[in-house]
């Protein structure tokens, strides 16, 4: 009987101990569903995404939604103040969240968010980077990874060109961004482990 649900996609980390596991899960699901829908709407606007098979569109979204949310919601993690803002808008200290059981994943997300924000990307650059995060040909279960790979390469080329134009003296930014991809994968794996530990019995 866990008393806390330490995910900023929730309205609060506190869980009502009188509620059933199913009710807690339903409430949490209602909280994060709008953000997931936004990721899907974002994906639909990526040129070429809708031309992929429906199976592959779903596979990419299933595998990559968490990573896209980490990028989009990096601003919820404040490293200087050491706080995390939940969807209700309320801030909680990292220390408090750690005492509730959030450990390595929370610290890794803080670290990731700080480094991503330090790159000071424009909205357009961030959007294109997010598209590159989502369209990854090495996700499992793809039926036509060649098509995904072609789209991924095209998006990556466009991102490189945009970064090179906007930051002519900082060629390392593109490399730093590419290095964020395995970091996101690692955060995704850590998050999946936590999810599995938290699964609710029907």
């Amino acid at each position: 009987n866990r008393m806390h649900l330490v995910c900023p996609m929730n309205t609060s980390p506190f869980v009502d101990p009188h509620k059933s596991g199913h009710a807690i899960w339903e409430e949490f699901s209602m909280s994060f569903t709008p953000a997931v829908r936004e990721v899907v709407e974002f994906a639909k606007r990526i040129p070429g995404f809708r031309e992929l098979s429906q199976h592959d569109q779903i596979s990419l979204l299933k595998a990559g939604t968490f990573e896209v949310l980490v990028v989009r919601f990096a601003s919820l993690f404040d490293v200087k103040e050491r706080t995390v803002t939940f969807l209700s808008g309320k801030k909680y200290s990292v220390e408090m969240l750690c005492s509730m059981g959030a450990g390595d994943l929370l610290n890794s997300m803080l670290d990731f968010s700080e480094k991503l924000r330090a790159l000071d990307l424009s909205e357009e650059e961030m959007s294109l980077f997010t598209a590159v995060v989502l369209v990854s040909a090495d996700r499992s279960g793809l039926e036509n990874s060649k098509s995904v790979e072609a789209l991924q390469e095209s998006l990556t080329r466009t991102l490189r060109s945009l970064i090179t134009q906007s930051h002519p003296n900082e060629s390392a930014i593109f490399t730093k961004l590419l290095l964020k991809l395995p970091e996101l994968r690692s955060l995704n794996n850590m998050h999946s482990e936590q999810l599995l530990a938290f699964k609710v019995q029907p």
Partner: peptide
């Protein structure tokens, strides 16, 4: 529910959003 995305009900949300359906699940 060995797949984390299925565990979250993510596929259902994604599928509905992709198809443009706004209907909620009726359990």
């Amino acid at each position: 529910y060995s797949d984390p995305a299925s565990n979250l009900g993510l596929e259902d949300i994604i599928r509905k959003a992709l198809m443009g359906s706004v209907d909620d699940r009726q359990d």
